[in-house]
């Protein structure tokens, strides 16, 4: 509901999230190293094939790209007038490849799978005092509270609209903040009542001292 994930059974959907994220990471770096119009055109054809294989509905893909497209046009025009159209085409194609690749990963991977990958990737950071289980608990809490806070914000917006205050940022933010601060107290109590113990992970370089 909250995520952009589109369920499906293609090999891209089933591929491990770690692999997809790694390819995206390497791919995005490579794009800046090798930049030419024929290469990007070939990449576009390849990505179009992947989108076809993933059987993603056009609607979701287009919706994801629409806002980016609005940016691509001025970037292209900028180059046409200031530098030259070849560089403009190359730049726009490169951004397009990058965006399509990222959209493909976003639409075919469940956020929970990506959280698991992040938790695994963050494990080595334990040595500098980062606690991966705490981090993933906080991520879960954010996902839990976003829909609630959005509904709250919606109600505030409607209430202030009725009073003609919906153009007043302070009148919108203040009630939302008060709600947040009150909720924070209740929630901390509830978490501790259920036996949660935020035992600190002591960084190794501090243990020695």
């Amino acid at each position: 509901m909250l995520s952009l994930y589109v369920p499906g059974g293609s090999f891209i959907h089933r591929a491990p999230a770690a692999v997809k994220l790694l390819i995206l990471l390497i791919g995005s770096a490579a794009l800046f190293m090798v930049s030419s119009i024929p290469v990007h055109a070939a990449e576009l054809v390849l990505i179009a094939g992947l989108f076809h294989a993933a059987r993603l509905p056009w609607r979701d893909t287009v919706r994801q790209l629409r806002t980016a497209m609005i940016l691509l046009i001025p970037i292209f025009l900028f180059h046409v007038f200031i530098t030259d159209w070849v560089l403009g085409l190359e730049t726009v194609l490169r951004i397009l490849v990058l965006l399509l690749l990222a959209v493909l990963v976003t639409l075919t991977t469940k956020p929970t799978e990506m959280i698991d990958v992040l938790e695994a990737a963050a494990r080595p950071l334990r040595h500098v005092g980062v606690n991966p289980s705490k981090a993933s608990m906080m991520l879960s809490m954010v996902i839990r509270f976003i829909p609630m806070m959005m509904r709250e914000a919606q109600e505030i917006l409607e209430a202030q609209r009725a009073r003609g205050l919906d153009r007043n940022a302070i009148a919108l933010l203040m009630p939302l903040l008060i709600k947040t601060l009150k909720m924070a107290d209740d929630l901390s109590e509830a978490i501790e009542a259920r036996g949660y113990d935020p035992e600190p992970v002591v960084p190794v370089w501090r243990k020695k001292g």
């Binding site: 608990m137 879960s140 809490m141 996902i143 839990r144 609630m148 909720m183 209740d186 929630l187 109590e189 509830a190 978490i191 501790e192 009542a193 259920r194 036996g195």
Partner: peptide, 19 residues
């Protein structure tokens, strides 16, 4: 003590921690 005494709050929205 917390292990022995379970506690249910007034507002379930503020005590459900996970999505």
């Amino acid at each position: 003590v917390r292990r022995r005494v379970g506690f249910v709050f007034q507002n379930p929205d503020n005590q459900i921690v996970f999505p």
